[in-house]
Design a protein around this nucleic acid. Sequence first.
DNA 1: GCGTTTTACGTAAACGTTTACGTAAATCCC
DNA 2: GGGATTTACGTAAACGTTTACGTAAAACGC
Lengths: 338, 338
Amino acid sequence: MNPTIKDVAKHANVSIATVSRIVNGLPGYSEETKKKVQQSIEALGYQPNAIARGLINKRTQTIGVLFPDVSGMLSSEVLEGVENAAHDGGFSVIVCNTTSSGKRTVKYLRLLQEKRVDGIIFASEDVKEEYYKIFQEMKVPVVLVSTASSKYDLPFVRVNDFDGAFQATEYLIRKGHKVIGMIGGSDEDPIAGVPRMQGFQKALESNGLSFTNNHITKNEGYRFQNGKESLPLLLKKLPDMTALFAASDEMAIGAMSAAHQLGIRVPEELSIIGYDNLKIAEMCYPPLTTVSQPLKDMGQTSGEMLVSLIKGEQQEAKSRYMPFTIVERQSVSDFRDK
Amino acid sequence: MNPTIKDVAKHANVSIATVSRIVNGLPGYSEETKKKVQQSIEALGYQPNAIARGLINKRTQTIGVLFPDVSGMLSSEVLEGVENAAHDGGFSVIVCNTTSSGKRTVKYLRLLQEKRVDGIIFASEDVKEEYYKIFQEMKVPVVLVSTASSKYDLPFVRVNDFDGAFQATEYLIRKGHKVIGMIGGSDEDPIAGVPRMQGFQKALESNGLSFTNNHITKNEGYRFQNGKESLPLLLKKLPDMTALFAASDEMAIGAMSAAHQLGIRVPEELSIIGYDNLKIAEMCYPPLTTVSQPLKDMGQTSGEMLVSLIKGEQQEAKSRYMPFTIVERQSVSDFRDK
DNA sequence: GCGTTTTACGTAAACGTTTACGTAAATCCC
DNA sequence: GGGATTTACGTAAACGTTTACGTAAAACGC
């Protein structure tokens, strides 16, 4: 089995306290003793036991990250950023796939509490009261990413969804489009659903364009299939539509697929703008113009924020709205001549 | 802070051994004592400390998973399967993003060794000697996924890449194509590079079609951009090419993008078949026909295999070749009339 | 040389849990 | 009723590490 600190101490003929001091770079030993101990460590192949250290220090150097869909394209980029920041800060990442289930989320939080993780990153979902209660019990820092909570004072890292939608819609308006539809999310989703629809509506109204219920179709999810099914519905409600804003890249690409099937040329007959700037945005045909959420940076920033809170480098984190841009590709046509 | 087992024992007026027995469902207490202890647990909000338990049991209920690219589309689906299996088996997953760097991989393995993880899943990369040395030191089970090792006897879960490529190429041949090219990976990649190229070559030769160096372009990576850059090169070498097999879905979609730009109609003028069946295969235009690696199932299977090894339910794991299928979509035309 | 300060150790206790083993009481069976 | 077995505890030690504190020796300064 693995040699312990006792084996090293015996081999080097010193006490375990001396070995510990040397291993951890604390003062209190001679150069001669240090060399002797290091030789013993190498000879025995000693690897310190982080479990024992965690028990004493009451810190495990581990954080938990909860995603509603760990293999989703959004999640995987955020995860990369989080993992980079955590690793650089000396922390390991336990990943939890909650599948948007409240029960499973509570189970994971309890598990993370038992494992005494030093902090939590909670991604892309609304914070329920019972989650917040567990956060409180755990007495560790929590950072939200790609989400926020109106009810609980938890630091977050996100993009301003209202502004992003507003500017995406204004972009279409500036390109000369006057009949613009939206493939939206859910009325009950306070994170990605409601603000993006509100931003869309506000942009229309601010530019003197009409907004009615016919301008939006709503969905429970944000997937390719949702977008594909929504386009025919939207066209029925808004037959003169020349452009649309989709509340996610996947839905935009789904709409694109449906347009191909309906023989509608994109962008010549229908312009489409998405939201996220996932990797696939450049891979579809035509390449998608979209609102760019800097997902990996958001993961990185939230990871750094959490590490900083754990280390006590700051007592309170300042929530961050990350900048977004409109990445122009080829899915939006210039309608100003028409 | 968190109440300990000592607090519960004091509150319930029993010993800590009794609390432990009750919490862990071991025999040796009366129903009356059990009720009393459970009330104390609830009143104090006791959560067992998994760190202390891990130190005693020499088992952390945690596994480490190493990916060369954690946000890659391949990785994220495998990760979901692994995480599901691990969670169901009572294990947490520490995710490590090695970025294909040998140095970083060693660093992660050492970290996982210190954290005393119960097992390792190693994905999508060749096993180097120094990794294998660390596996040996750690004395925990290791399972490979989406990779294998010719040099070390480690159980793996993968698809037979030779067969997959062979059948993809035969599929094109059965569709009447006679001049078939390949966008391949690297000669130095014994996992995804060489076998897929060999399968392609064998299929051509077995069907009496010519194979020369002009039939393959090679790449260092398997990304969209690699595919996009490869198509013009391949067309230069093989101007009469009517179909191509790409060694990954991303490269297939990259080739598709290049075809659109060159005004080549897919599949009418050029048929394309990919490899992986990533989510994006159905999202591109036209939807991609591809060899389907069951990525999530592979993750699930490798996770189950590792859990079983850790629990001692089996002493040796039997390596698994997972079945693949050809998922027909719309990127391959029937060339038998022409 | 002597008193003070610093250095280089080692000892003992702690962290929160699990469990082997001993003991007393209760139960069972002849 | 008595001996054997089972049940229901509690005690003590262990797991591998960190560190406060005490002590002896060395170094420093007058």
